[in-house]
């Protein structure tokens, strides 16, 4: 006997992601999902961002790694709520999924958060396939990775809302063509905006902080409009 199902296996994730989005919308929390390959500098960018925004905004972080709580410890120094998700206890998953984020949301006091950063697992492939309930997907690409990454890993770049080009302080020490890198990213995603920065020196962090503030304002206005 043949039984028709016609069910999307990834649908289960999308359903939970929508639940997360609803919870976060009600609280007016801007949620940003940071994706990159390992070592692109997500954690240092977050440290510098928290330093910059901490006195004006209440920030929370969900840290995803296969193993260790090193990154969570780095961020907890800023005295903000940080939840570490390690996927080695759940099969070493290569990405965060909506259910892991849902559980993490359960352990955060959402009333005291305005901006929530989700640092995804370092991987340019799988995280792009899983909606977590975030407002924006941010892709971090460091100059040392080469200008062809957007065309080599197009799926992640296609889904991103913003590209952060990190390690700008190395620009003059590398044979990298920054213009070509940006051109490649627009080949995959014509609307992709980019901000160039160096988490190490702090250059460009202001511009990124402005982008976050603008999006938080937009979110607040939208949540307000929905509430009235």
């Amino acid at each position: 006997m043949k039984i028709k199902v016609l069910k999307d296996v990834l649908k289960a994730n999308d359903t939970i992601a929508e639940e997360n989005r609803t919870i976060l919308r009600k609280k007016g929390i801007l949620t940003l999902n940071l994706m990159s390959s390992p070592g692109a500098g997500k954690t240092l960018i977050l440290e510098k961002t928290v330093e910059r925004l901490k006195k004006d905004f209440k920030i929370g972080v969900i840290e995803g790694d296969v193993s260790t709580s090193n990154d969570a410890r780095r961020l907890a120094r800023y005295d903000i709520p940080v939840i570490q998700i390690n996927t080695d206890s759940i099969g070493g998953a290569c990405h965060l999924d909506a259910n892991m984020v849902k559980e993490a949301l359960g352990s955060l006091n959402l009333s005291s958060i305005q901006i929530l950063f989700i640092e995804n697992i370092g991987n340019l492939i799988c995280p792009a396939g899983f909606d977590l309930g975030e407002d924006k997907k941010i892709i971090v690409l460091s100059l040392t990775e080469g200008e062809d990454k957007p065309v080599k890993y197009p799926v992640a770049f296609r889904k991103a809302d913003l590209l952060l080009v990190n390690k700008l302080d190395l620009l003059n020490h590398l044979d990298i063509d920054l213009e070509l890198l940006l051109k490649n990213s627009r080949k995959v995603n014509p609307d992709l905006k980019s901000i160039q920065l160096s988490a190490r020196t702090g250059e460009g962090i202001d511009k990124w902080a402005q982008w976050i503030k603008k999006n938080l304002d937009l979110k607040k206005r939208r949540s307000g409009a929905l509430g009235s």
Binding site: K4, V5, K7, D8, V9, P154, R186, K187
Partner: peptide
């Protein structure tokens, strides 16, 4: 993997199919 229109060379492309992961049926 880079989607460029063969006619007008635009990069503004919508994906119609190819991202799915469906269980169609079982026996």
């Amino acid at each position: 993997a880079i989607f460029i229109c063969p006619d007008c060379k635009s990069c503004r492309i919508k994906i119609l199919s190819g991202e799915e992961f469906y269980i169609d049926s079982f026996e």
